[in-house]
């Protein structure tokens, strides 16, 4: 019964949290979209194209945040054999991949009018593309084995090895002379950005986090149910074999 102890607690907690995370996501993303598209000024240099920032930057944060979360869950699964950690790492991967894809796509849409190119093999852009491939690799590996335990273990190791890419992304704009601008929000001495632009940025960032929590709960529930189905099926096969 030890196997069910933690998932049962997760399911109880999930039931309480889900309506709240849904509400925070809807409110923050609704308000964030309003301020991003209507309630914030155009940039004096970039004009209206600056509005892409409110999708691009929070997506980039989420792409990295989800990867760190996935690596932490994977470490917990490998070290303490926590029965839920594997499931949560697996549940986070598609969310992280979605945000990383959005970051690259919106970056491309922003890069064309501002830099004059859809894509450049710049350190920041390239390391972000590697992040997307790490997510794809994780998702392929975790489902590649008939025995889910083996898939979880192999994918957890990939997640941990790939974590080296996260600091490379973060500091790529400082280590290399790149086309991409350096950080202007998360930096020493406070954000160098006006509050009229910071408000929609943070609303979107909080909304994306709440969205991640909701998806984590839904996918976690699916994984737990699928695991229980597998256990019952195995028991049935076992009982049938003994009955013969």
């Amino acid at each position: 019964m030890h196997r069910f102890a933690n998932p049962a607690r997760f399911l109880r907690l999930a039931k309480v949290i889900l309506p709240w995370s849904n509400a925070v996501a809807a409110l923050c993303l609704g308000a964030g979209l309003y301020f991003a598209l209507l309630g914030s000024p155009a940039d004096y240099q970039q004009g209206e194209s600056v509005r892409i920032m409110y999708v691009h930057v929070p997506s980039a944060w989420m792409g990295m945040f989800c990867y760190v979360a996935m690596a932490v869950f994977s470490a917990m699964a490998l070290i303490w054999k926590h029965p839920l950690a594997d499931l949560l790492a697996k549940a986070t991967a598609p969310v992280g991949a979605a945000f990383t894809f959005l970051c690259l796509l919106t970056g491309s849409l922003w890069g064309k009018p501002m830099w004059g190119t859809w894509w450049a093999w710049d350190a920041r852009l390239t390391s972000m593309l590697i992040l997307l491939f790490l997510y794809f690799g994780y998702m392929a590996l975790v489902n590649a084995f008939d025995d889910p335990e083996r898939g979880h273990k192999a994918a957890a190791i990939l997640a941990l090895v790939g974590a080296v890419n996260v600091p490379v992304i973060k500091w790529s704009v400082d280590w290399w002379n790149t086309l991409h601008q350096p950080a202007s929000v998360v930096k020493m001495g406070g954000p160098a950005i006006d509050s009229s632009m910071l408000v929609p940025l943070l609303l979107m960032a909080v909304g994306f986090k709440a969205y991640w929590i909701s998806i984590l709960i839904l996918r976690g529930r699916a994984e737990i149910a699928a695991q229980k189905v597998r256990i019952i099926r195995m028991a049935q096969i076992h009982a049938a074999a003994q009955g013969e």
């Binding site: 004009g47 209206e48 999708v55 849409l109 922003w110 969205y211 909701s214």
Partner: peptide, 22 residues
């Protein structure tokens, strides 16, 4: 301001991807 062709696809695809994952 002339950037409609870049701004709207960014938001459109963003919403589409999040709704799809949900």
């Amino acid at each position: 301001g002339g950037y409609g062709g870049y701004v709207w696809p960014a938001y459109g695809v963003g919403i589409a991807v999040l709704v799809l994952v949900l």
